[in-house]
């Protein structure tokens, strides 16, 4: 990786330049929160945001998407094209970039998902450093740092950005649209100092030792019943999660009943019918079993395949949960016990 330094006053040049070639999407204010939205004017970009309501997964794996149009008579696909315009996703935090890398394992590993892949391959990622909030726990999984998965990454040094350049395209875009300079020792030192300050500003260090094993050892713990009693099965946790990828598939017929669309929509393992089969069997009827499954899958199921936990510690689910269930609380409950 190589590095450049860019004065913060140059930021609008970069955004305007990128907008000439791409649709630019980044954090913008919405009421008192933030969302990833289209950037028409560099002044709309809110790079000092805490976190967005929805994670950037919506740009690669939309809440609803048409998979194919079909003809009923001969059960034939009419078209399965995917719209994937060239886009820049500007101002993504390390947790969310890591979230995309975790999604890549599912959608771009065995049996590549062509819809996700088309958008992923047509999106330039510009990351930006952040300040931990009191719900952030990315430090627990190491997702507070990001080493790949971006084209350009901007680390905020106050008056300037320490710019990490990961891809050829990132280098070209930087060269084409904004004035930068070589890094000096003072810049590297300021970068290190910023990193230390960042690492030191988390409100807690979560103990995650032996977590996958504890999930099995405490599978019948009453803690799950307590969580199940509180959970409202609303699925908000999965909706706002940057790594929840489950979906449902629905066919919709046109009024003429001759053609239609097969669509997919975000789904949630917290919904009661999620594990029901046609013969009437439902493998997760109780709320407790569903809450447990969410954690079991994220911290053991996914890990058993990809050696990473399917959580980036963004804290969105904790903020979204009306029952105030937070992954930090669940991890702490699992870790409690033994001789201190």
């Amino acid at each position: 990786m190589f590095f450049r330094v860019m004065d913060q006053s140059r930021l609008p040049d970069l955004v305007r330049g990128l907008a000439e070639e791409f649709e630019v999407v980044g954090p913008v204010a919405k009421d008192d929160r933030y969302v990833f939205g289209r950037i028409e004017d560099p002044a709309d970009l809110e790079l000092h945001y805490d976190t967005t309501l929805l994670p950037p997964k919506k740009l690669f794996f939309p809440p609803e998407e048409r998979m194919m149009r079909f003809r009923v008579a001969d059960n034939e696909v009419v078209d399965d094209e995917v719209y994937a315009g060239p886009r820049v996703l500007f101002g993504v935090h390390p947790c969310d970039i890591n979230g995309l890398l975790l999604m890549d394992n599912v959608f771009m590993g065995d049996f590549e998902d062509p819809y996700y892949k088309a958008r992923r391959e047509n999106t330039v990622i510009v990351g930006v450093s952040c300040t931990p909030t009191d719900t952030c726990f990315c430090n627990a999984w190491g997702t507070d740092e990001v080493h790949w998965g971006f084209d350009i990454f901007l680390t905020d040094l106050g008056d300037r950005y320490f710019v990490s350049v990961r891809s050829v395209l990132g280098a070209e875009l930087l060269d084409r649209h904004v004035e930068t300079r070589e890094i000096g020792d003072a810049d590297t030192e300021a970068f290190q100092s910023a990193s230390r300050k960042f690492k030191g500003s988390f409100t807690e260090e979560l103990d995650t030792s032996q977590l996958p094993l504890l999930l099995d050892a405490k599978f019948d713990s009453p803690m799950w019943d307590e969580l199940g009693d509180r959970c409202l099965s609303c699925g908000a946790c999965s909706t706002v999660c940057p790594t929840c990828y489950c979906f449902d598939v629905v066919d919709r017929l046109e009024p003429d009943q001759k053609t239609g669309m097969r669509e997919r929509r975000w789904d949630s393992c917290q919904f009661v019918e999620f594990a029901a089969v046609a013969h009437g069997e439902n493998f997760r009827v109780s709320r407790a079993s569903r809450v447990k499954y969410r954690y079991y899958h994220k911290q053991w199921g996914y890990l058993s395949k990809f050696e990473r936990v399917l959580c980036v510690g963004c804290g969105r689910c904790e903020r979204a949960c009306l029952a105030k269930i937070s992954p930090r609380e669940v991890v702490k409950a699992l870790e409690t016990g033994g001789v201190q």
Binding site: F111, F247, C269, F274, A276
Partner: peptide, 15 residues
């Protein structure tokens, strides 16, 4: 028998 909806390890229903 589970709810294998996508068949290819993506949709999550057959966990």
């Amino acid at each position: 028998e589970r709810r294998m909806k996508c068949g290819i390890g993506k949709c999550g229903h057959c966990g």
